[in-house]
Nucleic acid binder design. Structure first.
Lengths: 154, 154
DNA sequence: TTGCAGATGGTACTTTGTGTCAATTGGTTA
DNA sequence: TAACCAATTGACACAAAGTACCATCTGCAA
């Protein structure tokens, strides 16, 4: 693990405490474990992937809690809910503005960090009547694995 | 309905025939009806919404066929699978490059046409190893209805 | 007109996500 | 540091979204 990654995880743990205190939420072991697990990963796991991964280490962790907690985290802005081509939610601990590329074949999502793709300015309100909060660019393409192995699915 | 809309629907029907012939797919009444229904709508319906709408007019249409056909259409590039905040697929008959705004509260998806948001150029391959096919910008915000009625869901 | 590959409909099933509620626990207060 | 209570959790049942399977049907090419 790089130093930057270690620092990122520490920052997220700090942010968890700050945000929970600010929102009057309890700091439970489940919440700590979930955020830690998500912060350590660089793929963008689904709720069930996180559940499978944590079930082993966090004894008695329930699937309901995983879904509920991730939703809570997304609501308080601690993590991002990332939409992929496949119809299931994926989550990302990195809430800074960055973009994603999603594999049309297996659905894997990776970061795509390139300030050249940032938009100039963002109107607060659009002619359509929507109030605009934020944006994200989702690229579609073929991941390295699927370029070689066309039978791969995830 | 505007003339432009009528022309769009006619173009899509033409495109359906061309693409099916090119791919060796049959031109079934179900496929015609589905594409027509999707092309006429300007919201971005889910598979089940299309199923509900067509069940009445296309007798005996099965839910399985709707899911299967939409997937097929997306694969041959006849329609787009649009990702929204909610974990369900939405579909769009307009395959030209344009962007979407999705309501964080009710999940509604609308078009956001503004060439000012287009990206300069697109590298074929990115350092991440992904082969890039295309991109779409998804704005998040609050739709006009939800700005007024915070209990509204769809 | 016929044959058949491909498409459909129906059912059962899996996956993804939500509602409910009793039992538990974090965190505050005394 | 003990006790209380609202918030959280786990377990189960349920709903919603999507897929697998297979017998039947049909578009379309010969």
């Amino acid at each position: 693990m790089t130093d930057a990654k270690r620092a990122f995880i520490a920052r997220k743990e700090q942010e968890l405490e700050t945000l929970c205190r600010a929102q009057g939420l309890s700091l439970t072991p489940q919440r700590r474990a979930l955020l830690d697990a998500l912060a350590r990963r660089k793929d963008h796991p689904t709720a069930d992937q996180l559940y499978d991964a944590l079930q082993k280490t966090v004894k008695g962790l329930s699937r309901t809690t995983v879904y509920r907690t991730l939703e809570t985290f997304a609501n308080i802005g601690l993590i991002l809910k990332v939409s992929s081509q496949q119809a299931k939610a994926r989550f990302d601990a990195d809430t800074s503005r960055h973009h994603h590329i999603s594999c049309v074949q297996c659905g894997a999502v990776a970061d795509l960090i390139d300030p050249g793709f940032d938009l100039p300015e963002l109107p607060d309100k659009h002619p359509s009547g929507f109030r605009i909060y934020d944006y994200a660019i989702t690229f579609t393409g073929l991941c390295p694995r699927c370029q070689q192995d066309s039978s791969h699915t995830a």
